[in-house]
Design a protein around this nucleic acid. Structure first.
Lengths: 211, 211
DNA sequence: GTCCGCATGTAAGGCGTTACATGATTAA
DNA sequence: TTAATCATGTAACGCCTTACATGCGGAC
């Protein structure tokens, strides 16, 4: 009760990223930094001033546990791994609803969440996520298109070519995102179908089922 | 010399966004907020705790000037417009080189910059930007693809479908970004070509020029 | 023996977030 | 007259940024 005073599941993007790196593969702060420098995860901050405090916060919150390795040698390193508490907090965080606000401003984080969803919550959760995600990205894309048209019509002075192209870029990315979601949904449903009817392949015709 | 101690052209993303809204269209803090709530610029923070301090910083730095309107009435509002200093700072900021780091982590800001480039620096600057941008997005896309392959091969334990799809998403977005850049480059070069040979169409053969 | 990579941190400062505060005007 | 909108702010806090600090181990 003295400190922390955590909100709901308030994980910062960096904290989520750290947890996702640690998930299944314990690592030290330094190793995480390297991942955030050398891999596509470079998207996140690799500065020690961000990572070490974040690790400490996560440890204080009980989401990860650090164990010192090679404490006998002169170069010890602290390896962190996810606690069971951490895993369930992640599950909670990752399976939040897809909000319109997140679509508009935190697409990256949503994708990061989706990447973890299967291992944390199972493939069914992925289907739910994608159904929701596809619907909302589509709606947002339409909104952007409408907006562009309105903008062009109402504008008395001509918009520059470059600003128009920039605007189009936004629409194209969301369109692409929606395409991806539909494709991903197919892939997920495929996998679901296979795992649901594995051995009963030709034995149990569906039409007769329980009618 | 007393305060500010500005760095090079250190404009935060929010500050750039504010300047770009004010550019050519003076506005009050409240109006800017509305734009950041209701238009695609919602991407940026609309909280008064972010915008009003940012406006103050920009005014202190001399990049914008605020004039109080309707000071006689009981509901005055302070309308800001770009100063000439502000315009040249923006020009500087917007025409920075496209760095690999920005490609990887600040795509949005690069696109925002591009949107302003033509009105601030002319269409030639847009061509330079896009040449650079297309090359670097292409290189980065290749890097991501290689990375995905390495990842898949080295992985002894199977990656989940969802994490694989998430990874693919990243690649697809960058591929799309690169496509957009190529298309935008064409559009820009088209416009350049047209503006370079307008009236001298068949009249002035270039070969004879000043030799 | 010097430089680079490993490994972990701290300190100051900046900026955005959330939440609160204030008061006028207009529409119900 | 109550609520919503206009309009501008402040305060506390959190987290990231930049920069600095420290010290071991291996390679050349």
């Amino acid at each position: 009760m003295k400190r922390t005073m955590k909100k709901n599941t308030g994980l910062s993007t960096l904290e989520l990223a750290i947890l996702s790196q640690i998930y299944g593969r314990p690592a030290s702060g330094y190793e995480i930094r390297k991942l955030f420098i050398e891999t596509p995860a470079r998207h996140f901050s690799s500065s020690p001033g961000a990572i070490y405090p974040a690790l400490k916060r996560l440890e204080n919150a009980g989401l990860i546990t650090g164990t010192v390795e090679q404490s006998d040698t002169l170069r010890p390193k602290k390896v962190y791994q996810l606690s069971s508490d951490g895993a369930s907090t992640m599950r909670e965080h990752v399976s939040q609803d897809v909000s319109r606000a997140d679509i508009a401003t935190k697409l990256d984080e949503l994708i990061l969440r989706f990447g973890l969803l299967e291992s944390l919550c199972g493939i069914e959760a992925c289907e739910c996520f994608l159904l929701d995600f596809a619907e909302k990205t589509n709606a947002y894309t339409q909104e952007l298109k409408r907006n562009l048209q309105d903008h062009q019509q109402s504008q008395h002075y001509a918009t520059s070519l470059s600003s128009q192209l920039a605007h189009e870029y936004g629409i194209e990315v969301f369109t692409k995102t929606n395409d991806w979601a539909k494709h991903a949904l197919e892939a997920v449903q495929n996998k679901l179908a296979k795992s649901n009817v594995p051995q009963l392949a030709s034995a149990q015709p569906k039409t007769t089922a329980h009618a």
